[in-house]
């Protein structure tokens, strides 16, 4: 009788222990999964911190103001061309046109090779509201000539509104 009670008690302990162990195992798996997720989240946060640092040091200082007013953008391009037209003999190759990011205008240029200061200024010339992209550069015994593109970025909102407008049939 005493043995039977002890056996029953021992088996009960075994069953309860196993049930408890199984519950702990399930909880452990849940916590382990959560821990792994947290580790991934921390890695993501560290990556975000690196991206933030990159944006602050490498992007933000050089970011140009994206315009939303189409007329204002045209004006800026034209004014920039006018400012430098005589200096570098700028001639319009392709009038204002758009791509995914910006309004552009293409010029040809021509500078005498003897004017070294002009040459240096020209090659280091910047457009403060956007970018200048060289398309072509030729240097011969007499002159420096070629083609360049002046880029005036526009904001995403502006692009979207223009696209919606285009779908409506209104002019861009």
């Amino acid at each position: 009788m005493r043995n039977s009670m002890i056996i029953t008690l021992a088996l009960l302990i075994f069953v309860l222990s196993m049930a408890f162990a199984t519950w702990l195992e399930e909880q452990s798996q849940k916590i382990d999964a959560r821990n792994r997720q947290y580790v991934k989240d921390m890695e993501k946060l560290r990556t975000i911190a690196q991206i933030n640092s990159f944006i602050e040091s490498e992007i933000a200082p050089f970011m140009v103001d994206e315009q939303s007013n189409s007329t204002e953008m045209d004006k800026k391009l034209i004014y920039f061309a006018s400012e430098n037209q005589n200096k570098y003999n700028l001639l319009v190759e392709k009038y204002i046109y758009e791509d995914d990011f910006a309004k552009n205008i293409d010029f040809s240029y021509k500078i005498e090779r003897d004017k070294k200061d002009f040459l240096n200024d020209f090659l280091s010339m910047k457009y403060k509201d956007g970018f200048i992209q060289f398309r072509e550069l030729k240097l011969d015994a007499k002159e420096l000539s070629g083609r360049l593109q002046v880029v005036q970025p526009f904001s995403i909102e502006n692009k979207s509104s223009q696209e919606i407008g285009a779908e409506d049939g209104s002019p861009k």
């Binding site: 002890i6 056996i7 088996l11 302990i13 075994f14 222990s17 408890f20 162990a21 702990l24 195992e25």
Partner: peptide, 15 residues
């Protein structure tokens, strides 16, 4: 049964 109880307790402790 005693062995099982011990194993069960050990297993639960380990978990």
């Amino acid at each position: 049964s005693t062995l099982l109880a011990i194993v069960g307790i050990y297993f639960a402790y380990d978990r």
